[in-house]
Design a binder for these strands. Structure first.
Lengths: 297, 297
DNA sequence: CATATTACATGAATTTTACTCATAGGTTTA
DNA sequence: TAAACCTATGAGTAAAATTCATGTAATATG
């Protein structure tokens, strides 16, 4: 079969003028190239060169092969380079799954320096999964899962990277704004605003209201963090969010963070991976950068 | 080195789904493909596939290779096909050199059916040569020389394909128009029109006037056959041309062909080639078609 | 739920191929 | 006319590709 190797020979002879020099360039003997092309000629049924004095001149068939070589060899080389980069972890795609809405704000702070350091790595963030975050991870739809609630399971491993307090956000005028912490019963006359996910996945319910048998006046959902805070600031309800997120908006909005219960609710953002896999270098770098975001918040 | 063969494997596995089926399609064993790709993976430093159940799924590197395969394999196949056609003489270029002006009219009659029969063969006609027609032939600038005066030489071979009489063309009013043949002295008061080449290459001089020590009133040159005949028709001179060419224009112009000398001058168009070369099929076909043009003239 | 089936991996043996060495036969240059 | 080059080629050898036999794991089957 006509191989890349044959094209490399034809290209080298065209470039260096003689078989002998081409052989040197390819770290082979003149004989090797001569035998190699002879075999190709038998296979093709057409000569590649004709002797002109002591040089070789391409025949029509040979010219065709040289054209092919010029088109195709650079593509081989480029692909090999790209794969080398993939192998070294300098290039690739980092597909990140998110299971926590407010984590998005945190993720942005990790991603932007990461993209600068690894210009050839694509970051792809996904939020909706057919079989849940774990399924996506195990099914190779994503390579990394960002979640505050690690669900330990065979084949997965987690790494905590960022600890924060989950607090209630209230308008500055709210009666709990001055208190050291809020109690479940305090919210009985409030509208609670959350992201649109099942209540079981919301810590305000699972760790605060439900255990105390308390409830709110009304529960409504909003997609985006910014609107949610605007609503709270306007006195239209209260919400539960990471403390650092609230603090970032306190100078612009009339909002106050209040501890949830006497002891507060503390969470940890975890990164989840498939266990026992050799991770590309850039993925390790991402993890390192993620660990260091504490200082930024 | 990453070879076409590797890409063929990756492509076949993508197409057939499993290594085993790909192996069948490639007429190899499953083991051969497995070993082959394993070696490639070591070379690249990156895995091509990852096992998912008992199937193989491409890694990022593998996906890159598949993309390369999809781009590059069709090019290999196309080039191999084209070269096969070149080998079979169905495709190529026929570079024809011309050493005789009126032959062009004859050549057109051969070329047009030839082009129909060999749509993938390019015909390239050249008329001016740095080192003469023979030099062009031996130097591979042309593959075939059309000449009425074969100059036999080592390394060349000729084939006569078309015989014709070289005649004098005179206006219908000329006094020799009625005669059976013209004699050298008859042209003493005439203007002789020829193509612009050395007189030694013109048969009217070398075979008619010069041997008899005769000459014409004036000698002028014209490039194209049609204008030459118009001039003769208008009584502005006489010319020497193939008889069949004159006959083709007799119904439109007031011209008459007259034999040159009692015995006439008979010529033969020859095709010249480099000797001892295996000629492509289409070139042999061209020769056959050239031989059959007698009947068309 | 055990069993048959299907699919890939792997080590060893073998066949095939690629490569080198030595040398011959041309061509060009001094 | 020799010296310097260049390619072609036959024979021997090193290397690679391929097969065979077998292992292991996942999936389908009855």
């Amino acid at each position: 079969m006509l191989e890349r190797h044959h094209l490399a020979i034809i290209h080298a002879v065209d470039k260096h003028g003689t078989l002998t020099e081409a052989a040197n360039a390819l770290h082979l003997t003149q004989s090797a190239l001569s035998h190699g092309i002879k075999k190709l000629e038998v296979h093709l049924g057409a000569p590649v060169w004709r002797k002109d004095g002591r040089r070789l001149r391409l025949t029509q068939a040979g010219q065709g092969l040289l054209n092919l070589a010029n088109r195709v060899l650079p593509q081989f080389e480029h692909s090999e380079q790209v794969i080398q980069q993939i192998a070294q972890g300098l290039r690739g795609a980092l597909r990140i799954g998110m299971e926590c809405h407010p984590c998005y704000q945190w993720l942005l702070k990790v991603v932007s320096p990461f993209l600068q350091q690894f210009p050839d790595v694509d970051v792809d963030v996904r939020q909706a999964f057919q079989f849940g975050g774990l399924g996506a991870l195990l099914g190779y739809d994503i390579d990394m899962l960002i979640t505050p609630d690690p669900l330990f399971q065979k084949g997965l491993e987690y790494l905590p990277v960022f600890e924060y307090e989950h607090v209630l956000v209230v308008p500055r005028s709210h009666f709990v704004a001055e208190k050291a912490f809020v109690q479940p019963q305090d919210l009985r006359h409030d509208v609670l605003i959350t992201y649109p996910v099942e209540s079981s996945r919301l810590d305000v319910f699972s760790q605060f209201l439900t255990p105390a048998g308390a409830s709110v006046k009304r529960h409504r959902t909003i997609e985006t963090t910014e609107i949610m805070l605007q609503m709270v600031s306007a006195g239209r309800g209260v919400a539960a969010l990471p403390k650092w997120l609230v603090e970032q908006h306190q100078k612009d909005l009339a909002i106050v963070p209040v501890r949830l219960g006497k002891r507060g609710i503390f969470k940890n953002i975890h990164l989840g991976f498939r266990a026992g896999e050799t991770r590309p270098e850039y993925q390790n770098a991402f993890i390192e950068m993620a660990k260091q975001t504490d200082h930024l918040m």
